[in-house]
Design a protein around this nucleic acid. Sequence first.
DNA 1: TGCCAGGAATGCG
DNA 2: CGCATTCATGGC
Length: 247
Amino acid sequence: MNGKKAFLQQDGNNLQFSEATAEEITRFIALDHDLPAIMRGLSKDAKLAPALKAGKGIRILRQDPWECAISFVVSQNSNIPRIEATLQKIREEYGNALGEGIYSFPSPARLSQATLLQLQKLGLGYRAQFVKNFADHVSKHGDFNGLHGKPYADARRLLMNHLGIGPKIADCICLYGLQKLEAFPVDVWIKRVMTSVYGKEITRAYDVSAEKVSAEKIAEFGRKRFGEFAGYAQLYLFQWERNVGKK
DNA sequence: TGCCAGGAATGCG
DNA sequence: CGCATTCATGGC
């Protein structure tokens, strides 16, 4: 976090942390999001309420936009264990050693020094080219072109100009990196849970069978249905769907 | 052991 | 546009 290591652990209602300030922790886990108010608003949707209840307390993090972007570019068409392993390799290979086996996430300048071949050797597959292009661009231009100050729709569109960033990953960057809480990323899990929970409504809204509706339609549906905190609805639905079948 | 993975680019009609 | 195919690799 912020190029340093930090430790955080929850003990009941008590949050314990070290090697970071309360302000840093508060910012990272976004305690400024008024979760009770957000839950009150979203739970007016009776179909969403079970997911909210099951995942009670889950929060959207405030991640560094750069790290967030690379992380989600790496995530595309992959699985979570592999994604975590790959990101760990990137940190070990190009980040700074912080002790205790912990490494910082590399800066854009540092990561752009990696060659395409080196990135491919980390197991990135075809995503290596996307990471390379994006690292080169950000290290050259220095920022995200002031994306923070732009409205959600503009930020999303600008992100999608980059190779390897489509609708879903742009939405994840908007949500977790830029704190555009109305973003509603649609992946395979969200597609599944949305068609099973809101199939009727989606069919009515778009006049296509719920199974055939495109990801972009579901994203639009989610934003309209859940409003300014659609991203929170997405997160709870995602967790809910992934935990189906588990205790 | 083949199917699937927190998708996106590309090409086609 | 909207749809189908292709992409590189590892987890299970």
